[in-house]
Write a protein that binds this DNA or RNA. Sequence first.
DNA 1: CAATCTGTAACGGTTACAATAACAGTAAGC
DNA 2: GCTTACTGTTATTGTAACCGTTACAGATTG
Lengths: 149, 149
Amino acid sequence: MNSEFTIAVHSLVLLAHLPDHMATSEEIAANVSTHSARIRKVMGFLRKAGYVSTKEGIGGGFILSCKPEEVTLGEIYRLTCQGTLKPSWCSGDESKPCMISSKMDRLMGKVFIDAEKQMENYFEGHTIGSMLEQIRALECPQLNTESLS
Amino acid sequence: MNSEFTIAVHSLVLLAHLPDHMATSEEIAANVSTHSARIRKVMGFLRKAGYVSTKEGIGGGFILSCKPEEVTLGEIYRLTCQGTLKPSWCSGDESKPCMISSKMDRLMGKVFIDAEKQMENYFEGHTIGSMLEQIRALECPQLNTESLS
DNA sequence: CAATCTGTAACGGTTACAATAACAGTAAGC
DNA sequence: GCTTACTGTTATTGTAACCGTTACAGATTG
């Protein structure tokens, strides 16, 4: 799996942690530890899907436009990674007379689709809000006043 | 995911379809559509785990040494791909004072491990035997006399 | 118009993956 | 004992995916 799913989740959790704050791609990139152009690319998907609002120009940036406890990781997975579980490499050869060789790719395709659904089902049980809660739970309450980066 | 899982499953299903037949790495490779050295590498894992027996020299090759209906895809997944779901790329930075940035990688690590367990759980519901049955079911019964490759 | 930001495309480096070649070791048949 | 046919293993090259980076057009503010 590529890391756009991770970047999307991290960015949304960060924005949920900073309500009413316009975060620039530079700020988010520093927090995620990647380049701002990459953040802008991933945020583009999230904007089109309605999870964040963007503002160009001075004072612009990204801000959450959804309720963190209503956005599941399953939605984010589908948005960023759906269909990537199956390797692009294909086993067998449809033109071969052997039924194993000619049918294996189709069969494995089904298996990977179903396996991915199982995984998505697990992701449905987690939200951006619950992720933020888990991170806060790892932190001592009295230390929760640290700065952004 | 890399394709060794697919190659292992394909090879085992093929061997299950050819009981009492010593198949060489060349024969299996032709059926899977890859090179014999790659088959030998994957079959090495399967041999060490006891799923196949090998014989070197003239008349040698690979033969199944397990009951197809007792070998689950879950076992094969763990043997070939366990731990590969999480991207190697890490988001955040443990040394940062921000709790989101410093804890996100650890949290995502847990999420990916649990997601992978869900997937393995699905794979447990399928066996080499059931895969072979499904392929046979796709085939017209009266056409089941085709040759190996 | 100048400054600051998003949106997007393009390029280069690096890493992971697959194909291929090469060769040592082993077993069978003569 | 020699040849042949196979596994087992490593090394090398080709190739595609991924990530970092640069560049620039477009939008917005002051």
